[in-house]
Design a protein around this nucleic acid. Structure first.
Lengths: 126, 126
DNA sequence: AAACATATACGAACAATTTCGTAGATGCAA
DNA sequence: TTGCATCTACGAAATTGTTCGTATATGTTT
C-alpha cells in the first residue's frame, strides 16, 4: 500500500503524463537519474502486482496507468510522515515547513484563506 | 545521515528523556511496540557507529545521547519528504496537512502569526 | 568465592528494495 | 523468410534495515 521511493518516482511520471509505456516512463526517468530499462520495467511489473498500476496489454508493449490517485497517496504518506517524524504533531510539521521553504504570495494567500476557515471552525467547537 | 524509521523512534526517546542507557530506551520503546532488548542495543550501536549518537562508557553500561538535534533532523526529513512526495512543492504539503489534520486553536493562531510575517516578507519582495 | 543478574559484542538470518543480465516472444524490414 | 529491434518475463545478486540468539565480560549478592 505504501509506495517506495522508486515507486513514487514512477507514480509521479504517470500522474504528470498520463498512461504510458515502460519505454516512455523510462525515458522521462532517465532525464533525472541513471536507471536501466529493465529496472524500470521490473519496478512497474511489481507495482502492477501490488495493484499500484493497471495495464492495458496492447499489441506489443503494455500501457500502464496509475491505479492510485495523487491525492490519496499523498494523504497516506503525510499521515505516516507526521507520525514517524513529528510524533503526530501536524502543526509542528506545518511550522517547520513554513519557516523553511519559500512560497509565492499566491500560495501563502491560499494557505491563509484555508487557515482562516479552519480557525473559525476551531472557534465554534470551543 | 538519514535516520531510518527505527532509528527515529530511538532518537525521539532520547530527545524526550535525555541521555539514557539501552535499558531505559528499551523500556520506553517496549511500551509502544514489541522489541527485544538486543534489538534496541544493536540499533543503538549502529547509530553510534553512524554518528547519530554519542556514548559515555560508564561503569557497567553505556549512556547514549542524541548527537543530532530534533530540529536539524526534522528539517532534513522534511526536505526529503517534500522532494519525494510532493516533487518540491512545500505549499502543497502544507495545504494537504492543514486540510487533513486537526489542530488546536492555539496552534492555528501560531501558524497564522507565522504566516502573516511570511506574507509581509513576500509582499516586500515583490 | 560461587552463583546470578545484567551488560556489551558479534554474527547471522530474514525481509524488502533495487538493480540488471539473459532468455524467449513478437513485430517489422530487407 | 531471415534477421534485427524491441518487448516482456524471470531469476538472481547486491544493498539496506530489522531482528534476535549466543557468547562473553562484569558487577553484585550470598
Amino acid at each position: 500500500m505504501k509506495p517506495t521511493d522508486s515507486e513514487l518516482e514512477i507514480l509521479h511520471v504517470l500522474w504528470a503524463n498520463g498512461p504510458s509505456t515502460v519505454r516512455q516512463v523510462h525515458e522521462t526517468l532517465s532525464q533525472s537519474r541513471d536507471i536501466g530499462y529493465t529496472t524500470a520495467l521490473k519496478l512497474m511489473q511489481i507495482m502492477y502486482e501490488k495493484g499500484l498500476l493497471t495495464r492495458e496489454e496492447d499489441a506489443r508493449s503494455h500501457t500502464y496507468t496509475a491505479a492510485v490517485s495523487e491525492e490519496d497517496t499523498q494523504r497516506n504518506l503525510v499521515d505516516r510522515f507526521v507520525e514517524t517524524a513529528f510524533r503526530g504533531s501536524a502543526s509542528k510539521l506545518v511550522m517547520q515547513v513554513l519557516g523553511q521553504h519559500k512560497a509565492s504570495r499566491e500560495e501563502l494567500d491560499e494557505i491563509k484563506k484555508l487557515l482562516n476557515n479552519l480557525n473559525q471552525d476551531a472557534g465554534r467547537r470551543d
